[in-house]
Design a protein around this nucleic acid. Structure first.
Length: 423
RNA sequence: GCGAGCGUAGCCAAGUGGUUACGGCAGUGGAUUGUGGUUCCACCAUUCGCGGGUUCGACUCCCGUCGUUCGCCCCA
C-alpha cells in the first residue's frame, strides 16, 4: 500500500519470533563478561558530531560519508553514533573514570547507525556488543579481550569461525611502514584498481585489504608490516601470539588485515565467519593507545572489540537451534458472564502464585477456545463455565492426555505445582 | 554513492498482452450453541508495490519511483 508507513530503509523490526535469539546472545554475553569483571556502561545514542570526527578520524569513510548527522533545534551538529568506542571513551574521560585508578573494564550493547546501502549482514541501524579495557598496555589485555570474544562465540555454539591478527605498531611504526609501502606500490600504480590508486596518497595501508584480484596479488608480495615494527612493538606482538597459543586459541597472521578506524595501534584482529556472505566479519577490534588522549583524557592505553549482532543472529539461525518453546503452564478458557468475570481473577491469582497463564479473551465457543489452547503449547487447560462458576470450581484438563479433573479454586492454587510436576 | 536481480493475500506461489487472478499453508466461521490436536464445508486480493505511458484491452510491454535481495565501496 502506498499510504501505509513503512520502517525506514535499512532498519527492521525484530519480531517476537526472533527475539529469543537476541535474548540468548545478551544473556550469554552478560554472563561471560560478568565473570571477567567487565561492567556495563550505557552512553547516549547521539553525540556531538565532533566526537566522531576527532575520535574515528576525518579521513575514514565512516566519518566522510556514513554518518547520520543533523542539526538540532539549537543548531548543534548531532550524530547518531556509528560505533561505540568513541562514546565510551568520551564517558570515561568526562566522568573521570581514570581517577578510580587501575584498569577499567567496560562493555556496552545497543544500536549503531551508518548511512550505507543495506545488504546481507548490514543495516543502517545495527546492533553491537562491545568491550573496552582502559588503562592497560599489557599484551595480556589484548589477549584477554580476544579470549572473551572467542569464549562468547563458542558458548553460542558457533562454528567455522577463524581469528586473524596483525600488528600495525605504534604511531611511528605506522608512519615508517607507510613510506615503505608507498615506495613498493608506486611502480605498480597503473595495475592497481582505481580505488586503490586513489588510496595510494590518501590511505595507502587500506590498499592491502582490497578485494581486487590483481591488487591482492601485488599486496601479497608487499613488505610485511611486522618486519617494520620497533623492537618494543615487535615484542608486544610476539607476546600476544605466544599467549594466544598458550591459551589454545588458534589464529592466523594476516599482514593484509588493516582496520578502517584511524585510532588502532599495535594489535588488530577480526573474527570472520565462513558461513556469511560478503560481510563476514563478526567481531573486529584492536588496541587504540592514542584515543583517550586524543579525546582530552590522560595518555591511556586501551584495547577493545565490537561484535555485530545481526551477523551473529544470522549464524545462530543457521544452526537451527530452535527458539525456546512456550513455557506456558495454563491456558484458561471461559464462557458465560460469571465465569468470564472469575477467569480474570483466577488468572491473576495463579500468576501471583508463580504460574504462567494465558487467558482466552475471545468469548467464542469452547471448541474454538480449545483449539487455541492446543496451539498455545500450555501444559494444561483450565475451564471455567456456568457450572464451575456456580460452585466455585474449575476443570483442569491435561492437553497431552486429554484427561480431566474437577478442583475448587483453592485446591487448584495449593496443589497446582505438585500437579504440574507429577503430570 | 555505483552495478545487477526481484516485487501477485500474513507466508509460499501459478498466470507472462484478452475480458469474473490456479492452488497450497496460515487465519476466520460452521458441521459440534461445554471440550482441542483428525475430517468435511464455507469465507478469506473489485486487484497484481506505487505513479505514468503504449494498446481496443496490461499482473503481463515501456518509463519513473519506492521497497527488497546480491555484489562494490566500507565495516560489525
Amino acid at each position: 500500500m502506498g499510504s501505509t508507513i513503512q520502517a525506514i530503509r535499512g532498519t527492521r523490526d525484530i519480531l517476537p519470533e526472533e527475539v529469543g535469539y537476541w535474548q540468548k546472545v545478551e544473556a550469554t554475553a552478560r554472563e561471560i563478561l560478568g565473570k571477567a569483571a567487565y561492567r556495563e556502561i550505557r552512553t547516549p545514542i547521539f553525540e556531538q558530531t565532533a566526537l566522531f570526527e576527532r575520535g574515528i578520524g576525518e579521513a575514514t569513510d565512516i566519518v566522510g560519508k556514513e554518518m547520520y548527522s543533523f542539526q538540532d533545534r539549537g543548531d548543534r551538529s548531532i550524530t547518531l553514533r556509528p560505533e561505540g568506542t568513541a562514546g565510551a571513551v568520551r564517558a570515561y574521560v568526562e566522568n573521570k573514570l581514570h581517577a578510580l585508578g587501575g584498569v577499567q573494564r567496560l562493555w556496552y550493547t545497543g544500536p549503531m547507525f551508518r548511512y550505507e546501502r543495506p545488504q546481507a549482514g548490514r543495516q543502517r541501524q545495527f546492533h553491537q556488543i562491545g568491550v573496552e579495557v582502559l588503562g592497560s598496555g599489557d599484551p595480556r589485555a589484548d589477549v584477554e579481550v580476544i579470549a572473551i570474544a572467542t569464549d562468547l562465540l563458542q558458548s553460542l555454539g558457533l562454528q567455522n569461525l577463524h581469528l586473524d591478527i596483525n600488528s600495525v605498531g605504534d604511531r611511528e611504526d605506522k608512519q615508517r611502514y607507510r613510506q615503505v609501502l608507498v615506495e613498493y606500490l608506486t611502480p605498480y600504480k597503473e595495475e592497481l584498481d582505481p580505488d586503490s590508486q586513489d588510496r595510494l596518497t590518501r590511505n595507502p595501508l587500506r590498499i592491502l585489504d582490497s578485494k581486487d584480484q590483481r591488487t591482492i596479488e601485488i599486496a601479497e608480495n608487499a613488505p610485511r608490516m611486522w618486519d617494520y615494527l620497533s623492537a618494543e612493538s615487535g615484542r608486544h606482538f610476539a607476546q600476544v601470539q605466544q599467549m594466544l597459543t598458550e591459551l589454545g586459541i588458534s589464529y592466523q597472521l594476516n599482514h593484509r588485515l588493516v582496520r578502517g578506524l584511524d585510532y588502532y595501534t599495535h594489535t588488530a584482529f577480526e573474527i570472520i565467519s565462513d558461513n556469511l556472505g560478503a560481510q563476514a566479519t563478526v567481531c573486529g577490534g584492536g588496541r587504540y593507545d592514542g584515543l583517550v588522549k586524543e579525546l582530552g583524557g590522560p595518555d591511556t592505553p586501551a584495547v577493545g572489540w565490537a561484535i555485530g549482532l545481526e551477523r551473529l543472529i544470522v549464524l545462530l539461525q543457521q544452526l537451527d537451534t530452535a527458539t525456546p518453546e512456550s513455557n506456558l503452564d495454563f491456558y484458561l478458557v471461559s464462557r458465560g458472564t460469571d465465569a468470564e468475570a472469575n477467569s480474570l481473577i483466577l488468572a491473576q491469582k495463579l500468576r501471583h502464585a508463580g504460574f504462567s497463564v494465558e487467558l482466552d479473551l475471545s468469548g467464542s465457543a469452547f471448541s474454538k477456545q480449545f483449539k487455541r489452547a492446543d496451539k498455545s503449547g500450555a501444559i494444561a487447560c483450565l475451564i471455567l463455565g456456568d457450572e464451575e462458576a456456580a460452585n466455585q470450581t474449575v476443570q483442569l484438563k491435561w492437553l497431552a492426555s486429554g484427561s480431566q479433573q474437577t478442583l475448587t479454586h483453592t485446591e487448584l492454587l495449593t496443589t497446582a505445582s505438585e500437579l504440574l510436576q507429577n503430570r
